[in-house]
Design a protein around this nucleic acid. Sequence first.
DNA 1: TACTATTTAGTTGTACACAATTAAAACTTA
DNA 2: TAAGTTTTAATTGTGTACAACTAAATAGTA
Lengths: 149, 149
Amino acid sequence: MKELPESALNPLLKLDNQLCFSVYALSRLITKAYQPLLESLDVTYPQYLVLLLLWEHDALTVKQLGEKLLLDSGTLTPLLKRMEQRQWLSRRRDLRDERSVVVELQPAARALQLKAHEIPVQLAEKMQMTIPEIDALRTQLRQLITLLA
Amino acid sequence: MKELPESALNPLLKLDNQLCFSVYALSRLITKAYQPLLESLDVTYPQYLVLLLLWEHDALTVKQLGEKLLLDSGTLTPLLKRMEQRQWLSRRRDLRDERSVVVELQPAARALQLKAHEIPVQLAEKMQMTIPEIDALRTQLRQLITLLA
DNA sequence: TACTATTTAGTTGTACACAATTAAAACTTA
DNA sequence: TAAGTTTTAATTGTGTACAACTAAATAGTA
């Protein structure tokens, strides 16, 4: 009798059946889908996420950025330094708490915001989803994020 | 009159409203959720994905792995070299087509498969989802992957 | 057959991600 | 207030990701 592959015994060990791989692959594809749109801003996708937050809040500490993006200083510090070099933001110690570093939006990055308005719309088009569909899926993923964070 | 932040004018530019960020954040959280489970195998999550495929197919070319994982040789070659060093797989040119490199499962990695059976179950528990719920979400993400790939 | 185009991996350089560690500042509390 | 703890960024080292490029092998074609 011919031996079956283990994956036949445990279909959960098949890549095709894994939700986790879908999230992982989709995440990378989305980053790639953003790239041509972000090219005019000359930022990477993680840098764009930082800009989104600073456009909204103007100034945040590294810790606050990390909480919102679920990233630690090991990732953020070099990323923010690159953005500082391009004059998109400033980094300085908080005078009231020298442990913290305040990251503040600079004028050059404020100007970028005007170019960014179309990006979410174009992404939604690429994904061929309506706003309600996007909202529903996002809500579902948020629940998983809350669970795992 | 006080000026509103731009994000008030364009709510799509708020991080909280972005499906893409949810996918990105969830992907990283899932990788972290895997980590304690993969520790006993001493593999990273991308390496685990390669093992899933080799457990299923025994031998695949770098190109085939890349098609299934949506990764290119720039990522795979060094990753596979690390796995080769640990005797989990072998890499050799295909004699019938010297452009291709065949990656073949080695006995040490076959043995790892026994330890891996519980991993998908434990992950599903961490996500507090039933198999049908997982299947539904995966199907939805697959559609997006097909669209963007 | 020669010539060109395509396919396949590998290489190089840049940018995340993150665990583990370090160091300084601020907090706690005895 | 002095000692120990916690908080906050930065640093170090490893491992992805991926664009752009290179080189070898194969396929296609005039």
